[in-house]
């Protein structure tokens, strides 16, 4: 996978609330190349969520162009957008959004259910492979309630990987996790980015998390305040190794 994944030109998004017009994004331009690990940062009200919705093809810009993997999103209908999301984007949410009372494997299979070109055997095979990629090969039949938060988020990442998207779009993916588990998730993200060359766009408000990415876009009041390349991102694996070991109680305690 190479080339330009995201191409955004002078993107604006306005909402009309009664008589007032709220301008959430006031002209944003940037591009993301294949294999980048971009974090989008910003305080609340900076337009972060609006941008994320547009990047995720859940919303369309009012003015400006958005090309996802060469497809002009503006021209697509509701159903075509759904199909585009299905084929090109893998979502990871803050609240995991796994289906309750459904096994990990079935949760991972879910995006492929909406892709009619994939047979049920292939679906299963790819779901198993995706779970292996997030190191949960032994948790196929566990339901979300039987998994820890970190494990649930890894299932969600597997679900985002299973349709082989051009981009993984993570929305505060570590927001509900403690710092150790956050680092585990970030280590997994980095691994996917570096070994498999996955393009990742990660929305967060924690600078700590942003330091693991190769590029950080800072939003403020609907415009890009800063767009910095991070030449030497921290390795989440190393940070994890340097953390004090988990306290383990002797048996019988």
């Amino acid at each position: 996978m190479s080339g330009r994944i995201l191409e955004i030109k002078d993107l604006k998004r306005e909402f009309t609330m009664g008589v007032e017009t709220v301008r959430a994004l006031k002209g944003i331009s940037f591009t993301v190349e294949a294999g980048e690990f971009v974090t989008i940062m910003g305080s609340s009200g900076s337009g972060k969520t609006t941008l994320l919705n547009i990047l995720g093809c859940l919303d369309k810009p009012s003015i400006g162009d958005y090309l996802l993997d060469g497809v002009d999103v503006k021209k697509l209908s509701r159903d075509e957008l759904a199909q585009l999301r299905n084929h090109k984007i893998g979502f990871v949410f803050q609240a995991y959004n796994l289906l309750p009372r459904t096994t990990a494997l079935e949760n991972v299979e879910l995006p492929l259910l909406y892709n009619k070109d994939i047979s049920s055997e292939l679906r299963r095979e790819r779901a198993i492979k995706a779970l292996e990629a997030v190191k949960l090969a032994d948790r196929h039949d566990h339901t979300p309630s039987q998994l820890s938060g970190g494990q649930q988020q890894r299932v969600a990442i597997a679900r985002a990987l299973v349709n082989e998207p051009v981009m993984i779009l993570a929305d505060e993916a570590t927001g509900n996790l403690d710092s150790r588990t956050s680092y585990e998730i970030m280590a997994l993200m980095q691994e996917l980015n570096q070994t498999q060359g996955k393009t990742i766009v990660f929305v967060t408000h924690e600078p700590d998390i942003a330091s693991f990415s190769s590029r950080t876009i800072m939003l403020r009041d609907g415009i890009i305040q800063k767009d910095t390349k991070n030449e030497s991102p921290r390795s989440a694996r190393e940070v994890l190794d340097n953390l004090p070991k988990r306290i383990t109680f002797p048996t019988g305690f």
Partner: peptide, 16 residues
């Protein structure tokens, strides 16, 4: 509602 949102975001059409 959240499940519906999730299904839609991963590619379910209104028809589905």
């Amino acid at each position: 509602t959240r499940e519906i949102g999730l299904r839609m975001s991963i590619g379910a059409r209104g028809k589905d």
